[in-house]
Write a protein that binds this DNA or RNA. Structure first.
Lengths: 343, 343
DNA sequence: TTGTAAGCGTTATCAC
DNA sequence: GTGATAACGCTTACAA
C-alpha cells in the first residue's frame, strides 16, 4: 500500500492553469506576478496538497537549508561504546540545544554526521556536493586533519573548541586556561596547601589548556609542582583518578577536576574514604553542567557557557553560508567561577 | 574564493573513456562490467576525486540513506527555553546514542527535525518527498496527530514511547506501569507506611502510566490513596513538588519520583529539611539515567533501557524501510529495579 | 508579467 | 557488457 505519487509543480500548474515557472515563482515568493494568478496558484497548491521537493530544489539551487553537526568517531577505538558515552554526556545535548536555538528560528535543519578517520574524503565530498550548507564540528582529537580539509575546500564551517594546530577556520571556544586559573586561585584563597589535579584526556585541546592553566596559576601561588592523574571525562574515570591520587598523596586538601562528570566520581571516592568535602578536601569541577547541581555537596565549578557558545557558532556558520567570502573569525568566552558547596 | 565545481559522473566517464552509465554501474558495484573497464573507471574516480552527489542520486532512487529524528516542539509554550531543557536531559542523548549504534553501522544518517503544531503538513510532505527514508518519533504530547498522519501517509516510522491513542504504527516502549509497581512493592517491602508520589506531566503517556502503575500497586499494599504532586521532569520541578508534599504530609516515609532528574531535586529538599534518606524517607527514581549514580545517596531507581529500546527502534525502522508492506510491530521492555542506597 | 526550455547529477530502461 | 536516452522535480535564463 505505497502512498501515491505526490503532486509536483507540474500538477499544480495544470490545476491553476499556468506554467510550471509561474507556480515556482509564486511558491518562492517572487514579486513579479499578477495578483490574480497569485491567488489561483495558491488555491491550486492547497487543493493539490503540494509540498515542494527539497531534494530537487537543492539540486539546482545548491542550498539545502541544512547544516551538518560533525562528530568525530575516532574515540571508538576504546572498545567500550563510544557513542553511548559521548551522546549521554551533557556536553552533546548542550551543544545541540545551543545550535538549535538559532538554527530552528532560521528554518535550518541539523544533520548528525559521525565521521571516522576514514570518512574524511567522503564527508568533504558530500559537503562540497551540497549535502549540507555548512558544518559545525565538535571537539576533535588533537591532530585531526578535518579542520584543514574543510578550510582548503572552502566549506562554511565553524569549530566548537579551537583546533589543536592553527588553521584558517572560524571557531568558538572558552578560555580554558583562564578557567583553570580561576580554580587554582580559589583553592589558594581557601588556604589549600596541597592541591592536586585530575586532568582530561591529553588528545583534547581543552584538557591540555585546563591542565596547563591550573599548573601555571598554582605555580603563582607557590606550588611549583602539583600531583595529577588523568581521566577520560567520564564519572568512573574520575573516581579511579581520585583513588590513585589519594593513594599517592593522602594528605591532599584540594583538587581541581577537569570536568564535572569526573568530579562526581571524585566526590564519591572522597566520601568513601571518609574525607569531608570541602573541609578535608575542597573540590572544584569544570563546565557547570547539570551534574554540578546534582552533586552532593553541590559542586563549585567553572562555568562553561556551552549553549551560548554553540548558539554563536550557529550564527557564525549561518553568516558564512550567506557570505562565503567573509573573514575567519573566532569568539572566545570568559569563564567564571560558580561557588557552591564543594569548595 | 569559491571552490571549483566538483567532478561529475560525466567527468569520470570522459577520463575513463567510457559512458556515464558504465561509471554509474561500477560505482554502485553492479556486476555486469568488464574487469578491464572496471579498473579504468576506478582509476578515473581516484584521479578526479569523484564523490557521488547524494542529492541527485536520491532524487531518482527515492532513497536518502537518512532517517529523521522527529522531536516535538510543542512544549515550547512554556516560555522558558524548551530546547535547552529537552536536549540537556539525559533522555535525548540516550536516544540518539541508541539510534546511532545501529544506524551508523548501517551507513544511515540521522537528521534532527523539530516540528511544531503547525509543521505537521510540511513534515509529512518532506518525508513523502523522500527527504528521509523514515522517521523515529520521540515521545509526543498526548494527543498529537502526528502518529496518525504518519500512519495514513504510509511513511516508515516508529515511535519511541507508545502513542496516547491506538494508531497503526510501530513503537517501542517500556512497561511503565510495571516499573512503577516495582517501586511500590519495594517501598512496601521496606516497611514504608506513608508513601507519596511525584508524577511527571500529565500530557506524557509515560507519566500517566507510572502514576497509575504506582497507585494501583500501592493499593494492593493497602494504600487506598497516595498523596501526590506533579512536576515536569526537571530537577527544579522535583524539588518544588517535594516541598509541597512535605508541607502537606510531613510524616511521609517514602516517595516514588517519576524520573531521576526530579528525584535529584527531591533528594536535595529532603536533605535541607533534615530528613535522612533512606532512613527517614526512602526515595525511588525512574530511568536509571546517569543522574541516578550522581545522586547522594546513590539513587535506587527503575531501569529504563532507553539505549536498547532506541536501538531496537532503529532496527524496526530500517526493516520497515526495506519492507514497507511489513506488519506494524511493537516491542515492550520489562523494567527492573536497581537497588542502590536511597531506598 | 508569463511561458519555454535548458539544465542540476543521478539512475534505469532500453536497444545494440 | 555497454551506451544512448529518458526520467526525477525543480529553478532560472531567455524569449515572448
Amino acid at each position: 500500500m505505497q502512498s501515491q505519487r505526490l503532486p509536483t509543480l507540474e500538477d499544480v500548474a495544470r490545476v491553476a492553469g499556468v506554467s510550471r515557472a509561474t507556480v515556482s515563482r509564486v511558491v518562492n515568493g517572487i514579486r513579479n506576478v499578477d495578483p490574480q494568478l497569485h491567488q489561483q496558484v495558491w488555491n491550486a497548491v492547497d487543493q493539490t496538497g503540494y509540498v515542494p521537493n527539497r531534494l530537487a530544489r537543492s539540486l539546482v539551487t545548491r542550498r539545502t537549508g541544512t547544516v551538518a553537526l560533525v562528530v568525530s568517531d575516532s574515540e571508538t577505538h576504546d572498545d567500550d561504546p563510544f557513542m553511548s558515552r559521548f551522546f549521554s554526556d551533557p556536553y552533546f545535548g548542550r551543544v545541540v540545544g545551543g545550535l538549535m536555538s538559532v538554527l530552528r528560528p532560521a528554518g535550518v535543519q541539523l544533520a548528525l554526521q559521525m565521521v571516522g578517520a576514514d570518512g574524511h574524503r567522503r564527508l568533504i565530498g558530500d559537503l562540497r556536493n551540497g549535502q549540507a550548507d555548512g558544518a559545525a564540528v565538535l571537539s576533535l582529537p588533537a591532530h585531526d586533519p578535518l579542520p584543514g580539509l574543510l578550510a582548503t575546500a572552502g566549506i562554511p564551517a565553524v569549530l566548537i573548541g579551537r583546533p589543536a594546530e592553527p588553521v584558517p577556520i572560524s571557531y568558538v571556544d572558552l578560555d580554558n586556561e583562564a578557567g583553570a586559573a580561576l580554580a587554582a586561585d580559589h583553592l589558594a584563597a581557601r588556604g589549600c596547601r596541597r592541591p592536586a589535579l585530575i586532568s582530561g584526556p591529553a588528545e583534547v585541546p581543552a584538557s591540555v589548556d585546563r591542565d596547563s592553566g591550573f599548573r601555571r596559576a598554582a605555580a603563582r601561588h607557590g606550588h611549583a609542582w602539583v600531583p595529577g592523574a588523568t581521566g577520560n571525562f567520564t564519572r568512573e574515570s574520575g573516581a579511579t583518578a581520585m583513588r590513585e591520587l589519594l593513594t599517592a598523596h593522602p594528605g591532599l586538601d584540594g583538587v581541581f577536576v577537569a570536568n564535572d562528570l569526573m568530579a562526581l566520581g571524585a566526590l564519591a571516592v572522597l566520601r568513601e574514604s571518609g574525607r569531608a568535602v570541602p573541609d578535608d578536601v575542597a573540590v572544584i569541577g569544570f563546565d557547570d553542567s547539570s551534574a554540578a547541581l546534582a552533586a552532593a555537596p553541590a559542586l563549585t565549578t567553572v562555568r562553561h557557557p556551552l549553549e551560548d557558545m554553540s548558539a554563536e557558532a550557529a550564527r557564525l556558520l549561518l553568516t558564512q553560508v550567506e557570505t562565503p567570502a567573509g573573514r575567519v573569525r573566532s569568539v572566545i568566552y570568559e569563564p567564571k567561577l560558580v561557588e557552591r558547596q564543594s569548595a
